[in-house]
Structures are given as C-alpha cells and as structure tokens.
Design a protein around this nucleic acid. Structure first.
Lengths: 336, 336
DNA sequence: TTGTAGGCGTTATCAT
DNA sequence: ATGATAACGCCTACAA
C-alpha cells in the first residue's frame, strides 16, 4: 500500500522535513502561515504518521499482547471485549494470541508477543501451565505483565479475577439453604487457580453449615467434549441431591446428561455462569447461576497493565484484585 | 523493557553489525567460525530481531487487521479463532478491532488499522454500514481487503460467507416437510447481506412448495436486548405454526417469550445456529438448527487475504465464496 | 570474508 | 523560523 510521508509533503512545499514535522506537531516556534500550509496539504493528502517509524523511535509500540487459552469461549471473548474497549480509549491496540491450553504454545506465543514488541502482556494461563518461571524472567527484564482469571501465586504481579471463592460459597450456600445435603461439584482441571478457589468456597460453605466434605462428590473434567457424561454417571452413583457446576459448558453438559437419563435432580442445579444469555431461563427445570463479570475483569486488568506500562502505578495497588460475582436465583424449591 | 540488539553482539564480539546480521541470517559468505560465535552468543543472550525495525525496513508489518461488529459473539469469536489459527501458521499476527455495529466507529477503526500499517484488512461490516465507498478508496491505494460474513456487493473483493440462502432454504423446507404452513421468520436488521440472503432462501422454499409469502409473518429485530418479545407477540397474532429465527440470540429470545406465554408452538422452531453448544438439545421442546461454519469462514477469509497480500492470487478465485451450512434436525413431529 | 554507508519515517538536537 | 544531522534497529549494496 502506497502511503504518503513527511518527505512527500516537504518536497511538495519546498521545505525541510523537520519543518513539516514541527508544523504537524503544532510547535510554537513555527510560522503560522507555514503551519497552515503544511496542515492543509497534509489533510488533503490524508497524511497519517507512520506508527511503525514512531514505535522504532520511541521504543514502544502501543500494543498490548493478550494471551488467552482460547478465543472462542464466552468468558474470554467477553473479557477481550472489555480489554479492547479500554485499550482503544487509552491509545493502545490489542494483539490476540491463543495458547490453546498448552504450556508449550503459551511460551511460544509469549515469545512472539515479546518479539512483536508489545508494551505489556495480559495473560490468562493455559491449563497446562504449571511453571511460570519463564514469565518471571520477562518480568525481570522489565516487561509489564498482568494476569487475569487464571492467575498464579508464583508470579508477583497484579492479577485480576472474579471472586471465585465467594461465588462458589454463595452457590453452595444457596443450595444448602433450599434443603440440599449431598451437593455434587462438577469442576474443571484441578491445578488451575480458579478451580482451587471455587473448591475452597464450596468446602467453606459445607463446613459453615455443618456438612461433611465428601471427595466422592467432586469430579474434575478435562477439556474433551465427551468427558462430562461419564463423570455425571459417576456422580449419580453417589446419589447427590444437587449439582454445582464450575462452568457453563459443564452445567449444560450436566443438564443434558441428566435429561438423557431422565433423572429428576436438575431442579437444583446451579452453576458459575459466564454468560448472560437467557439460556438458563429456558432450561426446564430452571437453574440458578453465579455470574462472572468477564467484561469488567478485562477492563480492570488492562487498566492495571497500562498503569504499569506508563509507570503510573500511583497508589500501591493490592496485588490480587477480586471482582464480585452475582448469584442469580432463577427458581428454587425447598425440599426435605 | 531492555532488549539486546545486533549492535550489542557486534560490540561484544568486536565485529561489525553487518557481519552479525549476515551470520544470523546464515549468509554463505561468512566464516563458519565467526558464524558459530555470533549464533552462540545471540542464543545465549536470547537475541530476537526487532520486528518493528524489520517492519520499517521491509515496509510491511505482518499484521492483519480484523474488524468485527463485536468480539463477544459466538459467531465472531469462532471466526477469529479460525483467523488466528491460520494467520499464526503463516507468520502473521492479528489485531482486533470492534466497530460496535456503528458505521462511524468502523471508519475510525479502519483508519487506525491503516495507521498501524496492517498489511491487510479482514472486515465483517457493521449493521450501520450502508456505504463502503471509504473501503473502495483504500482498495485503490492497494490495501488488500477481504470481507466475511457481513459482505457487500458494492465492494469488488474476495468475500467469504456461509451459504445463507441454502441454509435458510433448508430450514424452511424442513419445516414445510414436517407439515407447517404458516412459518414465521424472525430475523435481524433488514439491510445487511446475511439478512437478505436468508430471506431470499426462506421465500424460495415457500415458493417451491407453493406457499404464499406473507410479509406479516416476517419481523426484523434490532440490536436491543428487549426487542424480541414484542416482535414475537406481533407474530403470534398472525397465528404461525412454526418459527424460523435468523440467529441464536433471536431463537433463544423467541423460545423464552413463547415459554413465558405458555404457547405450544415452539415444537417447530428452527434457527441458524452459530454455536455447537448443546443448548439446542436441552431445550424443551427441541429445536432444529442450521449450523454455520464460523471457524472455517475465518480460515478461508484469512487465507484469501494472505494470498492477496503476498500477491499469490494464483488462479482467479471466484469473488464470493460460500461455505456450506448444515441442517441439524434435533427432533421433528409431523403435523396436519 | 568483512566493513562502510545509506535508507526505511520520524523527531530531537544543534546549528543558522 | 527553519534547516541539517543523527538516531531508533535492521538489512544490503558496494567497497575493501
């Protein structure tokens, strides 16, 4: 694509590039007449400064690298929405990378983001990532990094998540208060941060209400499409009277499995809902949800990152920012 | 972030930057010993060439600008997934922009993408976009552009969509074949390409089966959250015996409205389904779907774009590429 | 086989 | 008020 540069303007107007540059930047030490001439001509030719040249000169790209396990996921696409909205307003653009839940790909894409000279990184860790040493290295090289959603306590950097503990507590408590006693918990990969926080919330609620924690009522689903059904079958053998699922995908899979088996339990299913679609309203019987503020998590995370990048970290922010979840009770019937 | 450059290596090894450059690019005209030295040292320091400097030099960024109405949308996030996957493999990165369904924002973001020196643009038009003249201008300046999903016949450039006509035809035909005669069509904004294609498919199917097209059975929903219910009410006054909805959002909204009103029609609802979630399986009564290949649309579109960028447009490709949809019959009962 | 110089587009510094 | 020059990091003629 042919573009016009400051040189073209200089040549056409028989002045030097420095004058053009100054005129365009509205320097005070320039003849108003020259200024007018330059600006008019530039507008007529639709001149825009070459941001690549600027990046090279200023040694910063105004690009934020975002690394997520996968884009095609309600939670992450909403988070990216929030990220893009704020980044745009503050003069940054967003390059998206997918780690595909793989540690190796994550390392590669982070390298790529660094090679692209991203000014900072916004990362939600892949489920395969157990070791964040490679991020610590980058941090020591002064690369601003902010984690969101899937965070790690092994990296001392601002991290933004939903309050998964409180959300899981509220969900479990709700089920207990409507009379359930054997609450099954269907969740995702055991070692990632959000799973552990949710599990802790679930356990805390059980404990507070004097219910015993039974690990037979907990199942961890991998990433496969067809993993949910057998797990639900497993859990059914424990005769639960409620399900608490840790994600949309699991909740829907769980409901589908129950429906297929014609089991009457789902009246009591609850889940961490990432979306605000009205699907939950449609499901019969209805299901309560815990809504995660995905959009806001993205916004806060990118705000943190830009503060780091621009060295504005004014007040010493708490390192782990937890955004509130919201329990949405769609329907509930007392039992027992 | 402090990075090491070719200069650092040159200084450390007491050679010139050109030698370092050549050694790293594995030039044949270089002393194997020097080469080894340079490469070893570079690896030890984890040297990576500055892609911004490269972009400036080569006058290309290896960045693809993607402009979508919104990211947090099943269809678009799946398409972006496909785009990112292919782009990554071919050495490109993806910068995401949202037009928020607004023409003005679209123009702005396209400008930004151009200012960012994107090598090419992948655009799904905002519903507010009626005039693509500004894109034609860019095209004349040799900027490669590919449209996908929401395309425009006013721009002569490769365009990739689902075969909306065939999909709508199949959906309507399915409903007719199971005995419906008054098929309501709930669709989106009237002027965008996909709406028109779907409407045409709907009409063609009616015609083929000797049913009269009745515009009272068609309603156009805007972008608002709460627009669907009143439209459904409207349609109910026409006593339809089936619904054909043009999107997930509409189908779900429609089902929810029907359920709320305790209307027994939904047994026959069908929709263009963008997702492969099992929600459809859960809904009672079940609903058939027409699946759109969002991921593949993204893949094909970016492939087209990269071909344009790299000037490889070997065979004169057909300008409008339509990818097949798939009718998924979840359940159907004959009536009448 | 290696070094020197120029240029990609821009701006800051130092003249004039 | 304006111009010449150098520099950001890299590559590549051209020279040695």
């Amino acid at each position: 694509m042919d573009t016009i540069t400051i040189k073209d303007i200089a040549r056409a107007l028989n002045i030097s590039t420095s004058t053009v540059s100054r005129a365009l930047r509205d320097s005070y030490e320039i003849n108003p007449e020259t200024k007018r001439l330059v600006i008019e001509y530039a507008e007529r030719l639709n001149y825009h400064p070459n941001s690549i040249a600027l990046s090279l000169k200023e040694n910063r790209s105004r690009v934020i690298g975002v690394i997520v396990p996968q884009i095609a996921n309600n939670f992450f696409s909403q988070a990216i929405d929030g990220i893009e909205a704020i980044a745009y307003k503050r003069g940054y653009h967003v390059i998206i990378f997918q780690s595909q839940e793989s540690y190796e790909r994550e390392v590669l894409t982070v390298q790529q983001a660094v090679a692209r000279k991203a000014d900072g990184l916004l990362i939600s860790l892949a489920s395969g990532t157990l070791d964040v040493a490679y991020l610590r290295d980058l941090q020591e090289k002064k690369l601003p990094i902010v984690l969101f959603d899937r965070v790690s306590k092994d990296l001392d950097t601002p991290s933004v998540t939903a309050d998964n503990f409180a959300g899981a507590f509220a969900a479990t408590e709700h089920l207990i208060q409507t009379g359930r006693r054997r609450i099954a918990h269907l969740t995702i990969l055991p070692h990632i941060s959000i799973t552990q926080e949710r599990l802790a919330g679930y356990r805390a609620a059980l404990e507070q209400y004097g219910l015993r924690y039974d690990e037979n009522l907990v199942r961890y689903a991998g990433l496969g499409q067809y993993e949910v059904e057998p797990l639900v079958d497993d859990l059914l053998e424990q005769s639960p009277d409620a399900f608490f699922s840790a994600s949309d995908r699991l909740a829907i899979g769980c409901l589908a499995a129950l429906k297929k088996r014609n089991v009457a339990i789902p009246e009591t299913v609850s889940l961490i809902g990432f979306t605000n679609i009205t699907v939950a309203d449609l499901l019969a019987p209805p299901m309560s949800t815990v809504e995660q503020p995905a959009f806001e998590i993205g916004q806060v995370a990118v705000d943190q990152l830009i503060s780091l990048i621009e060295g504005k970290q004014k007040m010493p922010q708490p390192n782990l920012i937890k955004l509130p979840t919201k329990l949405m009770v769609r329907a509930s019937s007392q039992i027992g």
